[in-house]
C-alpha cells in the first residue's frame, strides 16, 4: 500500500519543462504535501503545441498516441498545460472513435493507454478539496490566503470541442479551488478570453490589445491579481502588460496552492524573481509570506 492518496502519470509539456520553473516547482511541492505523487512520463514528446493540429490531422493524433503509449496502466495521466490537455484529449478521442487509426498507431508505438483518464491539474486539486470537504481526507497544516482578491483566468484552455466536453467550458472549478483556499473571487468579464497565444510572438500589437482588455477588465472589478493554470497565458499576459502603466501581477495556480500548503520562504523566494511583474508586495500585504 502506498502512502499517497493518489499516484498519477505526469505529462509536463514543453513550457513547464523548459521555462516556467516558477510553476513546476510549486506544483511538485504542493501536490506532494496534498498526498498526490506525480511520475513524469518517460521520454515524452511535444503534443504538437498550437501548430501540430493545424499542420496535419494525423500529426496531432500520432504525437498524442506516442505520449499515451508511454503511460503505465492503472495511473491517471495528469496534464497541467491546458493546450497539451486539449491536444492529447483530442488525440485520445480520435483513437477511441477510429479503430483503424488506433491499429496503425499501436503498430508504431506499442500498446496505447486509453483506459486511464486524462486529467487537468485543477481536476486533481478539485478532487482532493472535495474529499476534504466531505471529511474523508485531511490535509496537513494549511495557511489560508486571507481574502486575496483574485480574478480567475482560464484562458482558452477551458474551451473544448463539444465532443470532448458536452457541457461546455467548466465554470466553477478554479473558482471553487480559490474559495476553498480562502481567497476572495471577483466577477469579471474575461475569464475565458484568449491571451493571444502564438500571435503574441508574431503580432505583439494584437497581443497588447487583447491583454489590455483582460488586465483593465480585471482591474476595474477590483482584482489585485490574475490566477491562471496555463504557464503560456501567464507569460503572454506578463510580457504584453509591460508597456501598460497599471500592472497587475499574474500568478500561477500552483504558486497559490503552494502558499496555501505552507511552503516556507526559503523555498518560494526564488519563484518570484522569475516574474516580470513582481508579486511580492501583494503577498506581503496579505501576510502570505511565511
Amino acid at each position: 500500500m502506498s502512502n499517497y492518496l493518489l499516484e498519477a502519470s505526469f505529462f509536463p509539456g514543453c513550457t513547464l519543462k523548459t521555462g516556467a520553473d516558477e510553476s513546476r516547482e510549486p506544483m511538485y511541492l504542493a501536490l506532494e504535501k496534498m498526498g498526490v505523487k506525480l511520475y513524469e512520463l518517460e521520454d515524452w514528446n511535444c503534443c504538437g503545441s498550437s501548430s501540430g493540429h493545424a499542420m496535419g490531422h494525423e500529426v496531432a493524433t500520432s504525437l498524442g498516441a506516442r505520449n499515451l503509449s508511454k503511460a503505465p496502466l492503472g495511473r491517471p495521466i495528469v496534464i497541467p498545460c491546458p493546450n497539451c490537455f486539449r491536444n492529447i484529449s483530442t488525440a485520445r478521442h480520435h483513437l477511441i472513435e477510429d479503430p483503424a487509426t488506433l491499429k496503425a498507431n499501436e503498430a508504431e508505438f506499442g500498446r496505447i493507454n486509453l483506459t486511464d483518464p486524462v486529467l487537468n491539474i485543477y481536476d486533481i486539486i478539485h478532487h482532493v478539496f472535495n474529499l476534504v470537504r466531505m471529511g474523508s481526507y485531511t490535509l496537513p497544516e494549511t495557511k489560508p490566503l486571507n481574502g486575496l482578491k483574485v480574478a480567475v483566468y482560464y484562458g482558452c484552455g477551458a474551451m473544448y470541442p463539444k465532443a470532448l466536453r458536452p457541457a461546455g467550458p467548466p465554470r466553477d472549478t478554479l473558482e471553487r479551488i480559490i474559495l476553498e483556499m480562502g481567497g476572495e473571487l471577483i466577477t469579471w468579464p474575461w475569464p475565458h478570453k484568449c491571451c493571444s497565444a502564438f500571435a503574441s510572438a508574431v503580432y505583439p500589437e494584437i497581443a497588447e490589445d487583447m491583454v489590455s482588455q483582460i488586465i483593465t477588465g480585471a482591474r476595474e472589478q477590483g482584482a489585485e491579481c490574475l490566477v491562471t493554470s496555463c504557464a503560456m497565458c501567464q507569460m503572454n499576459i506578463e510580457m504584453r502588460e509591460m508597456p501598460m502603466t497599471n500592472h497587475l501581477p499574474v500568478l500561477h495556480l500552483n504558486q497559490l496552492l503552494a502558499l496555501f500548503m505552507g511552503v516556507k520562504a526559503s523555498e518560494h523566494e526564488k519563484w518570484w524573481k522569475l516574474h516580470l511583474v513582481d508579486p511580492r508586495p501583494l503577498l506581503q500585504k496579505y501576510n502570505l509570506w511565511n
Partner: peptide, 23 residues
C-alpha cells in the same frame, strides 16, 4: 489568423467543430 483557441467550437449551439474545419 485563427489561433486555434477553440472558442468557436465551444460556443457553437449546433456543436460544429469549427476549429477542426480551420485546421
Amino acid at each position: 489568423r485563427c489561433l486555434g483557441c477553440h472558442t468557436c467550437a465551444a460556443v457553437c449551439p449546433m456543436a460544429i467543430n469549427i476549429a477542426s474545419v480551420m485546421d
